[in-house]
């Protein structure tokens, strides 16, 4: 399933989708960045409430398919621009992290 399909079917908000057709394979929930880099697999959907600029670098280096901001967390313009430039997809979900994962799992 692609990032854009998940976004549409789960009713998430597309924040920036420079690589919308990227395939998603699995998921990971976490806010401690080194845990994410140590445990999340490439092509995962990474669900987090962390919203500082470093999430873009972590997503890019870990090679996850997208970041999904849970709990309706938002990011500033600088982060959106950086994500766009680095090809990092960001979605936003109004649901808590667990319910966000459940929604994806039900597709």
């Amino acid at each position: 399933m692609t990032v854009s399909e998940i976004c549409e079917k789960c009713g998430f908000e597309p924040v920036v989708l420079p690589e919308a057709e990227r395939e998603v394979n699995g998921g990971y929930i976490g806010d401690l960045l080194s845990w994410v880099m140590g445990r999340a697999k490439a092509d995962s959907a990474w669900i987090t409430i962390m919203s500082n600029i470093n999430i873009v670098a972590v997503a890019s280096l870990t090679d996850v398919a997208c970041i999904i901001l849970a709990e309706g967390v938002t990011v500033d313009e600088n982060i959106k621009n950086t994500a766009e430039a680095k090809g990092v997809n960001i979605l936003s979900s109004s649901l808590p992290a667990y319910e966000t994962a459940v929604a994806i799992s039900g597709l």
């Binding site: 806010d31 401690l32 960045l33 080194s34 845990w35 140590g38 962390m50 999430i55």
Partner: peptide, 15 residues
């Protein structure tokens, strides 16, 4: 508070 400092940096480098 930025999400770092979890004590996983050096272990990840080794991993």
């Amino acid at each position: 508070s930025l999400g770092f400092g979890a004590g996983m940096g050096l272990p990840n480098m080794k991993r």
